[in-house]
Design a protein around this nucleic acid. Structure first.
Lengths: 335, 335
DNA sequence: GACCGTCAAGTTACCGGTAACCACCGGGCA
DNA sequence: TGCCCGGTGGTTACCGGTAACTTGACGGTC
């Protein structure tokens, strides 16, 4: 007599119903060609009569394979990550992997916690946003001997697979686009200031210094970026430096918010002030005028991650590499 | 000799290292008070020396409890869902549950697939967006005997717990706000046209009919909504009905896109055309003018879901109920 | 001093699958 | 005829934990 009556239908139930042993039912599901056609049909009909649902834990425990992969993303409301997710999902989903999504909220501590959680789940690979991790997270990953993807930005010392773009260079390129059009008093607005925002800012600074211009006009905040914040920060900036000619925002949300603030103040864009954002989200082409931005190849990042990961999951050897997928400076109508 | 050398550290390894049996180690982790303090310390240090990571599958299989809950969301780039997620995460995370996020892409077929997947994982509860599901999904849920939350909209026939707001009534209320201000030729723009968008539209229709006004001025598309689409649809609408006085958009993205299009056409908002959106996202208070919208209590929905679910998980009996958390019409500056 | 209760740790069986190996059957072939 | 082989299905053990029950030591109580 069973100790616990889970009430759940198991392989054993199907097997009894059909009059075979459970291994045969298991095979009918996983290696159908190894079971005779007639029997397979009887098994299949028993399965859906009884409503059998395989127990993933049991399967994982027995086989040592979980058929799942963890994808950690910093934000659930940012289409930068949702497009990466889509690429990965499609690539790995077709190969039979389930993609488990975790939400770090831009915190590497939360990332560490999630890495441990998903290692407990036995994921066969992990995709992490960024290249900065806690020491403990690195130890966990090293011991787990599981393929790891670091994405979005690039690093010289990848843990394993690294796919992204050079955020510093992108920041410089956008700044150079301002310079090429004759702007000189170019400011920088940054929110959240996660590592990627810092890299973009460093790119702006480098381009300004190279041209012997001041990097004084810079405002940052640890708060998450939002449209409203873009407007507020632009306000502070104009108050402090009324002579601004151009503002480079660390992302499109901030830039759009800044644009709205200009509209409220009846400041012509780009006539009175030039603006640019970063990422190339949908909004930049919708505003009046369309915003300058750096378009990042998010969907492609997702696709490439899926390809590289599948190769590793199918046995390709580990070989830490960094893959630069580039970016495109789009001038829009705001500079 | 082990058949497969998983390489992974198990309870057994810790136990041998400390010189006890594995059940003692297991207890030290789950019921520390049942193990003497000295031994507990030795166990803990062995655990982090060897880097033990519990095997979630084994624990789940043995105990019949997965300590995880599935949350399905339609879109990973819409802060409507991310705020709900945050509420649920905080409420359930503290109680020791892991929230597994699934992405349906607004498809009930994909929802069905994910429901089955997560039932295999043995989740102890499911949170679903919406009240429409495939028949097969309903059968799966019924058989699983697991608490289910349907959220966002309300239904008269909840499967179990239902927390949301009356989307139809909200659509009517926003339309009434237009009417109260004297607008008569009020159009409706809808994208994606998932069930909630349909309900909002039906609310608009009902309010218009009640006032004996035409519901002719209506444009919808199955495409996902975006800022760009909002502009394009507004263009089509104005072309077809140049005499429009007001436009109610099924969400804020569309409304913002429509506003940008008005700016391009130098159409004063609300002077020449009044606009409203739906949801109360960050963007509506950032634009110039701020957009009218229906503010939905997303964070509260998440919080309440967590509370109701915890009660059920701790043994409260199933008792299908529908909980209406209401909404707030915010007039902004666009009507 | 016998008895009882409690605390700390161990024994045993089991969760629901899968790997690896084995057994049987019928047919083709030398 | 004897042998080998592929196609089918079964046997056995095990994955890494946990539930439930048991054991033994110790202290308090009457």
């Amino acid at each position: 007599m069973p100790r616990r009556s889970s009430g759940r239908v198991t392989l054993q139930h199907i097997a009894e119903r059909v009059g075979v042993t459970k291994i045969t039912v298991s095979r009918a599901l996983r290696e159908p060609h190894r079971v005779s056609a007639a029997l397979r049909l009887r098994i299949e009909s028993a399965i859906d009569e009884l409503g059998y649902i395989p127990n993933h834990s049991a399967g994982t425990l027995a086989s040592g394979r979980s058929h799942s992969v963890a994808l950690l993303i910093p934000s659930l409301s940012n289409s930068v990550f949702s497009e990466i997710q889509r690429g990965i999902q499609e690539g790995l989903g077709d190969a039979g992997y389930q993609v488990l999504i975790g939400h770090t909220g831009y915190s590497i501590l939360e990332e560490e916690r999630l890495i441990e959680t998903y290692l407990r789940y036995g994921v066969e690979a992990l995709v992490l946003p960024g290249t900065r991790h806690t020491d403990h997270a690195c130890r966990l990953l090293a011991r787990a001997r599981v393929p790891v993807v670091e994405t979005l930005e690039l690093t010289e010392t990848p843990l394993d697979i690294n796919v992204g773009l050079d955020q510093h260079e992108a920041g410089m390129a956008m700044t150079q686009a301002f310079l090429d059009r004759g702007y000189r008093r170019i400011g920088f607005l940054g929110a959240r200031m996660d590592y990627r925002a810092q890299l973009r800012m460093a790119g702006w600074e480098a381009a300004m210094r190279r041209t012997r211009l001041s990097t004084e006009r810079c405002l940052t905040t640890p708060h998450p970026s939002s449209y409203r914040l873009g407007g507020e920060m632009l306000g502070s900036m104009l108050e402090r430096w009324p002579d601004m000619e151009a503002v480079f925002c660390c992302n499109d949300d901030l830039a759009a918010g800044a644009l709205f603030e200009c509209q409220r103040r009846r400041l012509e864009v780009p006539g009175a002030l030039a603006l640019a954002g970063f990422n190339g989200l949908d909004i930049v082409e919708a505003t009046a005028p369309p915003l300058a931005t750096v378009v990042t190849p998010r969907r492609r990042i997702g696709d490439i991650i899926a390809v590289r990961l599948l190769a590793r999951l199918q046995g390709a050897p580990r070989q830490p590499t960094s893959e630069n997928l580039g970016f495109e400076v789009r001038v829009g109508g705001s500079l």
